[in-house]
């Protein structure tokens, strides 16, 4: 097995997870994974052994995924964003066990791209606002406000889905 095939077999699943988070569908995620590996093999000499290879490969994958957003011109941030409530935590009143991962991922995909990207980067991939601002070439304030809006939208969607599921159950009981 060639060295490239070994790298692929070691990291493909992990990177495909990243791709799925940033892609609209399974097919897009496959394309992103493919492009990410091509980029990884092209730039592998740039890996300076500072930190893990997996971390570096994930960053490359995130960059490739973001580039796809940019190519589609859907990643446009407003210059002036309100960061008034940016630091505020957002809570939902749900039973964690009753919520599936697929449902949560579908909620993320329903977000506008700018909120989706910032939420993914900050919450799921643990980037700091500083890193996000450098990556997306926006201010930290914009990053914070986009994160806050993403959280609020997700909160509303979860609450709505809760109501809907209650209504559905209620209807089923009545019928």
């Amino acid at each position: 097995m060639s060295a490239q095939a070994k790298i692929y077999s070691l990291f493909a699943d992990k990177l495909f997870r990243v791709c799925l988070k940033y892609s609209k569908n399974y097919q897009d995620a496959q394309d992103t994974l493919q492009d990410s590996f091509l980029m990884i093999f092209k730039d592998i000499k740039k890996f300076k052994h500072k930190g893990s290879f997996e971390g570096w490969a994930k960053r490359v994958t995130v960059n490739v995924a973001l580039q796809k957003f940019r190519d589609k011109s859907v990643l446009q941030f407003d210059a002036m964003e309100d960061s008034k409530f940016a630091e505020e935590d957002v809570f939902v009143d749900v039973d964690e066990k009753n919520i599936s991962l697929d449902f949560l991922l579908s909620l993320i995909k329903e977000l506008p791209p700018k909120y989706q990207v910032v939420f993914n980067l900050y919450v799921l991939d643990r980037y700091s606002h500083q890193e996000i601002s450098e990556l997306l070439k926006i201010s930290t304030g914009t990053s914070k406000s986009n994160l806050f809006r993403a959280r609020k939208l997700l909160q509303n969607k979860i609450n709505n889905s809760k109501i809907n599921s209650y209504e559905n159950k209620h209807r089923q009981v009545i019928s």
Binding site: A12, L20, V94, Q155
Partner: peptide, 24 residues
């Protein structure tokens, strides 16, 4: 039960396991 939305997503994403499609 109230839960921080970030924590909810992070906890769930830990369960996220996928298999890469063969053709890639």
């Amino acid at each position: 039960m109230k839960i921080n939305i970030d924590k909810l997503f992070r906890n769930k994403i830990k369960e996220f396991k996928v298999t890469t499609p063969y053709g890639v």
